[in-house]
């Protein structure tokens, strides 16, 4: 017991160290210049690619936002969710229903979708906080499975199996952008905001408490971390991000139907964050790229190929590189940085 606490104290030490003055920029660290480079590339890309590729990159951003949420829960909180597709779906449907029924201007759907999924996350987070490990996985899986028939049932509101078709957000004329580019920048804005939000969260008490819980639940509790409170909170923030991603999904696709949000989506999201890199900052983006592009390439080999690749990679990643692609990339970046500095 005492040993465990000592280790914990050691690992929190860096987090409580001195902070730089421009603390709001801290989410760009470590290795901030790489984030700026990535952001610059992200701003140029939509002007260089054909609309279909721009659309694909937009979807990468959508997935990245959802994976950010899942990363918060799994990577930082050490809890398993096999049902994050459900929050994604609730966010998507919230936006779709608002736009379909009340002709709500699309920008308003984002805060509402985020709020709805946050509250839903809080409500589910209360029992979830009492469940340990694999039981949480079970319950979230059951929720994801249950959601599809539920969406089909309330046909009046959700459009049933047929789903809802909506008009996509149009670019304001002053921008001079095409539709696909406008959607891309909307998704990019949401993604950047989401990254900043998560970075802020992780630096706050919440983040430190989460890490303490993940590393040693019992020790953390002994040290006075309010277990249930922070677990519930992590669940809610995580749900919010998945919901925001779902909302942007609705903008981008302009169509929602229950069969877009089967349990496969939840499992794909988990696969994405595991392969991308649990607990790492770049993990969600790499995971999003992976979830978007690997299936479309592998599909050419065989319909089963994406799953075979996903499944194998998840297992291999858990064996050899628990920090996923981001961990591997991080190693590459660090050695590259070192070479640069030597020159």
């Amino acid at each position: 017991m005492s040993e465990a606490i000592e280790t914990r104290e050691k690992s929190t030490a860096p987090a409580s160290g001195p902070r730089p003055a421009r603390s709001w920029l801290r989410f760009l660290e470590p290795r901030g210049h790489w984030v700026w480079i990535a952001l610059a590339i992200a701003l140029i890309l939509p002007f260089q690619l054909v609309p279909f590729r721009v659309f694909q990159l937009t979807m990468v951003l959508v997935y990245a936002v959802a994976l950010l949420g899942l990363n918060l829960l799994v990577g930082h909180g050490g809890q398993i969710s096999l049902g994050h597709g459900a929050f994604f779906a609730v966010g998507a449907y919230t936006a779709a229903i608002m736009m379909d029924r009340w002709d709500t201007p699309y920008p308003w759907t984002l805060p509402v979708a985020a709020a709805v999924t946050f509250v839903l996350g809080l409500a589910l987070g209360v029992p979830a906080a009492r469940l340990h490990g694999l039981y949480l996985a079970l319950v979230t899986l059951a929720i994801a499975i249950f959601l599809v028939p539920l969406l089909k049932r309330f046909e009046d509101v959700t459009g049933g199996s047929m789903g809802l078709t909506l008009s996509k957000p149009q670019p304001p004329s002053w921008t001079g952008l095409a539709e696909d580019q406008w959607l891309y920048f909307l998704a990019l804005a949401v993604a950047v905001a989401a990254f900043a939000l998560v970075a802020g969260l992780l630096r706050s008490r919440v983040g430190r408490a989460l890490h303490a819980l993940r590393d040693n639940e019992i020790a953390a509790e002994v040290m006075g971390v309010r277990l249930a409170f922070y677990k519930t909170l992590a669940f809610a923030w995580s749900a919010l991000l998945a919901g925001a991603a779902g909302c942007v999904y609705t903008w981008v696709i302009g169509f929602v139907s229950p069969d877009s949000f089967t349990v496969n989506l939840s499992i794909t999201l988990l696969a994405g964050i595991v392969v991308g890199g649990l607990g790492s900052q770049a993990g969600p983006v790499l995971g999003g790229l992976f979830v978007m592009f690997v299936p479309s390439f592998a599909q050419d080999i065989n319909q089963g190929a994406p799953g075979v690749i996903f499944g194998l990679l998840i297992i291999v990643v858990m064996y050899v590189a628990p920090t996923g692609l981001a961990g591997l990339a991080g190693r590459a970046v660090r050695s590259f940085d070192r070479t640069l500095r030597k020159e």
Binding site: L82, I267, L270, A271, V274, G304, A305, P306, G307, V308, F310, G311, L312, L313, I314, I315, M318
Partner: peptide
């Protein structure tokens, strides 16, 4: 879960 995805697709 990885095994699940793999076996299903295989």
């Amino acid at each position: 879960v990885g095994l699940f995805i793999f076996v299903n697709a295989a």
